[in-house]
Write a protein that binds this DNA or RNA. Structure first.
Length: 204
DNA sequence: GCGACAG
DNA sequence: ATCTTGTCGC
């Protein structure tokens, strides 16, 4: 499946951005997935919608997509492709993965759509701490190949990990994620999706 | 054998 | 991811 990842420049200018996140309720084995939508590059929040499901796979590092994708896919199946955000930002890695096929790649290949990975923590690969200023980044290398970047989205905060999911270049992924993170460590897309899943899970 | 390990 | 008090810093 990793061979099906297409690492190319975006085909059209980005006008909308999407963000994904999932929240769980261990007690009921229920989970909620959310897709947030933003105008780009204005980063004005347009809307967020959620989908409920049942946990059916445990969390295993390296097999993350098998846990979250079943809950995420319905968010796209319910919509016309023309309404999908131009670029989707996942809350997990893309090519930064032992088999170079993380959640963002898996979703990107299944949808055949531009997707970028954006994780809060390191999974694999060697990297150096980037310079302090916002926008600084350093490559994440594995087997001599650059598979992603450690990106500083705000001065002095810990870097986040950006990597190609599908149909974008690493440089484009870094630019989009940085512009989507004007005020906080995480992209507005991820923050909005996170707020949506928590709110939905709260009223259960 | 030992350490690392997205959410 | 989720739980959960106090604490440090702007």
């Amino acid at each position: 499946m990793a061979n099906k990842v297409i690492e190319t420049t975006l085909e059209k200018p980005v006008r909308t951005l999407g963000g994904l996140d999932v929240a769980y309720d261990e007690e009921s084995d229920e989970l909620v997935a959310a897709l947030s939508r933003f105008d780009y590059p204005s980063m004005q929040h347009v809307a967020s919608h959620t989908s409920r499901g049942k946990t059916a796979f445990p969390y295993i590092p390296g097999l993350f997509s098998f846990r979250e994708l079943p809950a995420v896919l319905p968010l796209f199946a319910e919509q016309d492709r023309a309404l999908w955000p131009d670029v989707i930002i996942c809350d997990g890695h893309g090519r930064i993965h032992p088999r170079r096929f993380g959640l963002a790649c898996h979703l990107g290949v299944l949808l055949d759509w531009p997707v970028t990975g954006c994780a809060k923590n390191h999974l694999c690969g060697d990297w150096e701490v980037p310079a302090e200023p916002r926008g600084s980044w350093s490559p994440v290398v594995m087997d001599g190949e650059t598979i992603g970047a450690a990106l500083r989205t705000q001065d002095g905060v810990n870097p986040i990990f950006v990597s190609v999911g599908n149909r974008v270049t690493l440089e484009e992924a870094i630019e989009v994620v940085l512009k989507a993170s004007p005020n906080y460590r995480l992209p507005e897309t991820t923050r909005a999706a996170d707020a949506a899943v928590r709110a939905a899970l709260a009223k259960t």
